[in-house]
Amino acid sequence: MVTLQTVAFAVLCLVAVLRVGSARSNPHARMSWLASVVGALALLTLGSVIPLGVLDGALGGTNLIYLVQNLLATTAFWLVLQAAASQESEDTPHSRRRYWVLGVILVAFSVAFLFIDRGPTSPTFIHDNVDQLAAVLCASIYLAGIGGISLQLMLAVRRRRLVAYWPFVVGGALAIVACINEIVWLFIAHAHAVDARTQALGYALFDPFFYLGVILIVAGILSFTVRKWNRETQMTLAIRQLSRITQRAGLTSATAEDGPATGGPQLSVAYDLLISIHDETVAGRVQLTARERRVLSRAEALVTRELGMAEAR
C-alpha cells in the first residue's frame, strides 16, 4: 500500500513544517516536533518517495536501510510518547528509565539484525528471509517495541478528555493490532504453517492498520496546534474590538501589573478589558451601543470558555 505510506509521509512533513514556529518558541513542543521529523525520515526509508534501491544502494545495497528505518520509527514513536507523558509529570524530574527502555529496544533489534544473512536490496527483506530466526526476531523485537510504546501512549492519555485525545487512543490501538498481527504472521511463515496465498493475506493486514494508526496519532498532534492557532486568532480579533470600545469610551483599562499569568497574555488582556467595560457600564459612565454589546458578549463567550476549564495535570 504505497499510497498510505505516501499519505503518512506527506502528513508528517506538513506537520513538521507547520510546527517549526512553535518548536522554536516553545521548548515543550520540541519533542513532538522532532517526532514528526524523525517519523517523516522513517517513512522516507520505505522507498515510496525515493526509490529503495537508491537509498539502500548508498548504504552498500545490503538492506541496511531496514535497520535505519526501524531505528527511526522506534525513536519517532518514543518521542511522541515522551511528549504525551511529559504532561503527566510536569514537575517531576525527567526519568532516566525512559531512555533506557528506548536504548534496550534499539540495541536488541540491532543485534538481531547483525545475525541476519542479508541478500541484495529488497522491499520485502524480512519476508524474504523469514526462514532465518534472526530475521523473525529482529522484526518481532522491533514490532513489539513499537506496540509497547503505543500501549504506553494510550495509557499516558487515558485520564485526559477523550474528546481531544481519541486520535491517540485509536491510533495507538491500530498500531498495536498491526504489530501483533505482523509478529504472528512472521512466526507462521517461519513455520511454513500456511499456503502462500493465506500468508500474503496475513501480511497485507499490516499496512492499513499501521499507517492509519500513524496518521491518526499525527492528526491528534496537529489538532492541538490548530486549536491553539484558532483560539489565538479569535482572541487577537476580540482584543482589537474590545480596545476599540474602551478607546471610544475613553477608558483607562485597569490591568494588574505583570503577574503570574498562566493562561497566556492574550486571555489576560481580554479579561481585563471585559471587566473594565462591565465596571464602567454598571457605574453608568459608559453606554454601550447595540453593536458594542454584541462584540462584548462574543468576546466574553471566548474568554469564559477557558475559565476554570483547564485539564487536570
Partner: peptide
C-alpha cells in the same frame, strides 16, 4: 482586592487543553 482578583482571574484562565497545547501546540 481588585489587583489580587485580576491575578486570580488570570490563574483560572488557562486554555482548556493547556497541557496538550504545550506539548503538541
Amino acid at each position: 482586592a481588585e489587583n489580587l482578583a485580576r491575578l486570580l482571574g488570570r490563574s483560572l484562565l488557562r486554555p482548556r487543553y493547556a497541557a496538550g497545547e504545550k506539548s503538541f501546540g
